[in-house]
């Protein structure tokens, strides 16, 4: 089994930066034997996390950056996403699965992250997201 693989990127917004980070994570997970389900789950959760940080987190931050750190070993993949915004209260986001909210086009990113990752934690003041995917989750 290869050693733990780590990565770090500063994301400013262009799509190519997100794609490059996603590819690096996928390659590391593949090296550590994560399966198709795991790759799908992490790709989806990371997509939501990184786009949320760039689009919503740094919305009012001119030239804002997102600090993205990750590590993958044989047991788990860990992700830290920090934007430069003032944060938010994730508990204040309406439940998109309520019947009254089903027709609202936005607001599903956080619930998808929680559904697909083993751990999802927004740290105060809400501009630092920590996520973990454990291989055993879907083994």
């Amino acid at each position: 089994m290869p050693a733990r693989i780590e990565g770090h990127a500063i994301l400013r917004g262009p799509r190519a930066e997100i794609d490059a980070s996603q590819t690096a994570v996928e390659q590391a997970m593949a090296q550590h034997g994560y399966g198709r389900e795991a790759l799908f789950a992490v790709r989806l959760a990371l997509e939501e996390a990184l786009v949320n940080a760039i689009r919503h987190g740094n919305r009012h931050v001119p030239d804002g950056q997102v600090d993205f750190r990750w590590s993958v070993d044989g047991d788990e993949a860990r992700f830290d996403v920090r934007d430069q915004g003032e944060g938010f209260d994730p508990d204040a986001v309406p439940d998109p699965t309520d019947d009254d909210n089903l027709e609202i086009p936005s607001g599903r990113g956080i619930m998808l992250m929680k559904a697909y990752m083993s751990e999802v934690e927004y740290r105060d003041p809400g501009n630092h997201l920590a996520m973990v995917y454990r291989k055993t989750k879907n083994a």
């Binding site: 799908f40 989806l44 786009v51 027709e103 609202i104 086009p105 599903r108 990113g109 998808l112």
Partner: peptide
């Protein structure tokens, strides 16, 4: 093979 919550939002808008 992959779609995001933003894509779901567009589908909802089209359905509406």
């Amino acid at each position: 093979e992959h779609l995001s919550s933003a894509a779901l939002g567009t589908l909802i808008t089209v359905n509406s």
